[in-house]
Design a protein around this nucleic acid. Structure first.
Lengths: 228, 228
DNA sequence: CAATCTGTGTAATCGGTGATTACATTCACA
DNA sequence: TGTGAATGTAATCACCGATTACACAGATTG
């Protein structure tokens, strides 16, 4: 397992004054809200260097706490990662919901498009956080209650939107399940290409990535829409 | 993945008679082709438990060699992973080329479809090996000569095929670059969904995965083809 | 107010890992 | 035949996740 290093500069407080702390409150024995601080530190690490750079020890270091302390709050590294993923997922959902609330209520296909756009916009701007909620390898998604529920909800939402579009005669295709999976594969694949560093070899640089994202979503929608 | 064997029971042979091994060939000091054996061991590990399960020590264990020995052949774990990826890529290309050689020469769109099908068939059947050649995280792709060249070649091939299809009036869309990237995102996304364990929550099980793959490729091609 | 209980942090330690170094052994070739 | 380049071994290092015994602090209760 590749991890980060850092080595962190060793505060080195003399053990002599442990009993009374006479001057300059040198940091209380009990941390205010270590759990929250650890999650924030891990979120920051994910943002800086990706999920693989997260180590329990480094999070503890950044929280100014001993290497064993985090295990009072998280049974394992995976449990910490899961908490991080849940926070990231919360933000992701907020973006989706915001975009959806601005989309025209009576045009399901436009809403479907807005869904895809919001999905990719967040994924492109937060690739490392997107990775942690999408990849199976950081923790057991089956034990992640909220995460699974949220995902199912999103799948249900896109399915319903697509069904409404079909009912309104906006779609040419009939196999809606295939359309839905294809749509998901398209956006997920695009987001993954970004994460996995494929864009340079496709001549797509950062500035045009979001524009390209819009282009492929529109291409896809033209492909499934009536008289595209 | 604990405790294979090794440790060798110390034997405690006096150094005096090391030169002649009188009975029962005690295993030669020099391995036949350690480099090759290490790659094979790592390939096997990747196939069994995924790229993350590969450790230099475990590969050494399986090769019956000391933990430091592999470093004579690979400067780092990443270098070993790169060698593994190159072997996997070779097999992947073989599958693509075979499929292409069976596709109708005069029908570029059909060839494009065959390309996508071969891509997904191999990816679905060798998910862990596919992952190692696709993900940036196991080694530095920039230093992987053959890999990059191979990828560029494949991109060039699909681009050319698409251009031929357009020249023959098989395509409705005009932005071929967007079509190409969308196509890649589609198949890569589908392969990634499989790797990342998304299919269970989409109600797609192993037996129908390849069928679904065919369905979304056909859906995509209908979307870009003239009078789909 | 004092005793105690419970939660939370520390220190020490374990086994696994990648990596480096000094040394041992072989093999190929001059 | 001897010698040097290849290649394997042994010992060691730092870092990691994880566990355990212990220290401390805050709340509860007599």
């Amino acid at each position: 397992m590749r991890r980060a290093k850092t080595t962190a500069a060793k505060t080195a407080i003399p053990k002599s004054r442990r009993r009374r702390a006479p001057v300059a409150v040198p940091k209380p024995y009990h941390h205010g809200d270590l759990r929250r601080v650890l999650i924030d530190a891990a979120l920051q690490l994910v943002g800086e260097s990706g999920p693989d750079a997260v180590s329990v020890r480094e999070a503890a270091r950044r929280a100014g706490v001993s290497p064993g302390a985090p295990f009072r709050h998280f049974a394992s590294r995976d449990a910490l990662m899961q908490a991080v993923a849940e926070e990231a997922q919360r933000r992701f959902r907020a973006e989706i919901d915001a975009a959806l609330s601005e989309a025209p209520a009576g045009d399901p296909l436009a809403r479907f498009r807005a869904l895809g756009m919001a999905y990719l916009r967040w994924a492109m701007r937060n690739p490392t956080h997107f990775e942690i909620i999408s990849s199976r390898r950081f923790f057991d998604h089956d034990n992640a209650e909220g995460l699974s529920a949220d995902n199912a909800e999103l799948i249900e939402l896109t399915g319903r939107t697509l069904a409404e579009a079909f009912a309104l005669g906006q779609l040419r295709a009939v196999d809606l399940k295939a359309v839905q999976i294809a749509g998901r594969a398209l956006v997920y694949g695009f987001a993954r290409m970004n994460i996995d560093g494929h864009f340079p070899r496709w001549g797509v640089d950062g500035t045009e990535a979001e524009r390209t994202a819009a282009a492929i979503i529109d291409l896809f929608i033209e492909g499934i829409a009536k008289q595209g």
